Computed example of a mutant assay.
Amino acid sequence: MPYQSNNDLPLPIRSHLPPHAQDIYREAFNHSYAAHRGDPRQEEIGHRTAWAAVKRSYVKQGDRWIARS
């Protein structure tokens, strides 16, 4: 299901990603979710797409996500 705000994101995402990365995740997920309407893997594709979008702008160092320079 699409996420209206960052507060609606799953707890692991909210607790691990900084706010800007959460914005990226939410927007990418919502766009992908809408684009794959009717696909039985719609939600899985949305989450994979969202993580890929986050990883383009952030890198994980230890247990923290840091913006790429």
Results as ranks from 00 to 15, higher is better:
M1N: 10
M1R: 08
M1L: 02
M1G: 02
P2T: 05
P2F: 02
Y3N: 03
Y3I: 01
Y3M: 01
Y3R: 04
Y3F: 08
Q4C: 03
Q4W: 01
S5C: 03
S5D: 06
S5A: 04
S5T: 06
S5H: 03
S5Y: 00
S5L: 01
S5Q: 06
N6Q: 06
N6L: 05
N6V: 07
N6S: 12
N6G: 10
N6F: 11
N6T: 09
N6W: 10
N7M: 05
N7K: 06
N7P: 03
N7Q: 13
D8N: 03
D8L: 03
D8P: 01
L9K: 00
L9N: 00
L9P: 01
P10I: 02
P10N: 00
P10L: 05
P10T: 00
P10H: 01
P10G: 00
P10C: 00
L11S: 12
L11Q: 13
P12E: 01
P12G: 02
I13T: 05
I13G: 03
I13C: 00
I13M: 05
R14Q: 10
R14L: 02
R14H: 04
R14W: 02
R14T: 02
S15Q: 14
S15N: 09
S15E: 13
S15D: 13
S15T: 13
H16F: 15
H16D: 14
H16M: 13
H16V: 13
H16K: 14
L17K: 07
L17F: 07
L17P: 00
L17N: 09
P18Q: 08
P18W: 09
P18S: 09
P18E: 06
P18H: 11
P19L: 07
P19K: 10
P19Y: 08
H20I: 12
H20P: 11
H20R: 13
A21L: 06
A21F: 08
A21Y: 09
A21E: 04
Q22N: 05
Q22G: 07
Q22H: 07
Q22R: 04
Q22S: 09
Q22I: 07
D23N: 11
D23V: 09
D23S: 14
D23A: 08
I24S: 09
I24N: 12
I24H: 10
Y25I: 06
Y25R: 03
Y25L: 11
Y25Q: 08
R26K: 15
E27D: 15
E27M: 13
E27A: 12
E27K: 13
E27F: 14
A28H: 05
A28G: 06
F29G: 10
F29E: 11
F29L: 11
F29V: 11
F29C: 12
N30G: 09
N30Y: 10
N30R: 07
N30L: 06
H31E: 15
H31P: 11
H31L: 14
H31C: 15
H31M: 13
H31D: 15
S32F: 07
S32I: 08
S32M: 11
S32T: 12
S32C: 15
S32A: 14
S32Y: 09
S32G: 05
Y33S: 02
Y33D: 02
A34E: 14
A34G: 04
A34W: 02
A34I: 08
A34Y: 00
A34T: 07
